[in-house]
């Protein structure tokens, strides 16, 4: 216990200073503002994007200070954060998760695979891109996208 407290005291703040926002306008003003609950859905990703998302919500990039928060069920969420090409097994669960998310809702597709299936395009287990299954509102490109890119996109949603 003491070593834990000492660690807390000596480590200090590791979060990067908040960069200025690219635009002052929220992505959709009036719909989601200030606080956004996010449910992450892995539709068939190679887990590269997951690492970057974990980093974006880690202590260094700390997306939660901008009002973005990961939750455990689409029933609690405003936003679905979908990664990877959509595989056969995840097609129906993704659709179900979208249906289970209460309106108003937004879908953020993370990574190149979510956009065009990336290297997995044409694979026997791949059904299509995220946009083929559910309507996508925001796309974050990159293979994988860097945490600050993800954070910037989420800040557009929260408006902070």
């Amino acid at each position: 216990m003491r070593s834990l407290f000492r660690k807390i005291l000596t480590t200090g703040r590791v979060a990067q200073p908040a960069p200025a926002r690219a635009s002052d306008q929220a992505a959709d003003p009036g719909v989601l503002r200030g606080s956004v609950q996010i449910r992450h859905v892995d539709a068939g990703s190679c887990n590269g994007c997951e690492l970057e998302i974990a980093s974006a919500f880690g202590p260094v990039y700390d997306a939660e200070r901008y009002g973005a928060r990961l939750v455990a069920s689409p029933r609690h969420a405003d936003v679905l954060l979908v990664t990877g090409p959509v595989t056969r097994n995840m097609e129906d669960p993704l659709r179900k998760a979208f249906e289970a998310t209460p309106a108003p809702k937004r879908v953020v597709a993370v990574g190149d695979c979510a956009h065009n299936c990336g290297v997995f395009a044409g694979g026997y287990g791949v059904v299509g891109t995220v946009g083929d299954i559910v309507p996508v509102d925001v796309e974050i490109r990159g293979c994988p996208p860097e945490p600050d890119v993800i954070v910037a996109a989420l800040r557009d949603l929260t408006g902070r």
Binding site: P74, R75, D92, P93, K96, E99, A100
Partner: peptide
């Protein structure tokens, strides 16, 4: 009207 959320299970 919606189904009970079953973690995406069918």
């Amino acid at each position: 009207k919606a189904l009970v959320w079953g973690c995406g299970g069918t």
